[in-house]
């Protein structure tokens, strides 16, 4: 055999050393479930469903002082077809209950619901003919936030809890 240039084929042991050397810096290994869950909970898009006073605190949570954008949930979509989180912020009256259900049905899977405030969780102070005693009579709820209205920090806490829930229960 004549002494020629190095073989056109890469020397496998040297290459794999090179790759594994950089594996630690540039790659992470995980499961598909976890990646998809990470994508979902870090960019939840709430559907605009501010009904009453809680909506004002929800706006405050998106405002400059409390800044829900840090948690990825800043983009409030007006169309439920583009949203995956419904924050029911406020009291739901008898006339509004079918609308609530319809908006929930229009959201594509996967979707989550936060019942913000006492009125959405259980009817609040209004135990009467006009208010639905808790939105879980109409839609399934993932996180309940107490308060009347809940502080913006409480709403952020509920978003974080929901993120943990998604991480824990993620399946593709």
């Amino acid at each position: 055999m004549s002494p020629m240039a190095a073989s056109p084929y890469v020397d496998i042991p040297a290459l794999s050393d090179h790759i594994s050397g950089s594996l630690g810096h540039n790659f992470v290994t995980t499961t598909v479930d976890k990646v998809i869950a990470w994508g979902r909970y870090n960019s939840m898009w709430p559907a605009l469903f501010g009904l009453a006073c809680c909506a004002i605190e929800m706006m405050g949570t998106g405002g400059p002082k409390f800044d829900m954008a840090r948690f990825g949930a800043e983009v409030f979509r007006a169309s439920p077809r583009q949203a995956d989180l419904m924050i029911v912020a406020g009291r739901v009256s008898q006339k509004m209950a079918p609308v609530l259900r319809q908006i929930y049905d229009q959201m594509p899977e996967p979707k989550w619901v936060i019942a913000m405030g006492a009125c959405a969780s259980c009817g609040g102070v209004f135990n009467n003919y006009a208010i639905v005693q808790g939105v879980d009579k109409v839609v399934p709820v993932d996180v309940y936030v107490p308060g009347c209205p809940p502080r913006p920090e409480a709403l952020l806490d509920s978003v974080i809890k929901l993120q943990r829930k998604i991480r824990a229960t993620a399946t593709v």
Partner: peptide
């Protein structure tokens, strides 16, 4: 007619 006095405001 809910505000009538003989209308019982039901709650839970």
């Amino acid at each position: 007619h809910p505000l009538r006095k003989d209308y019982v405001s039901f709650g839970e």
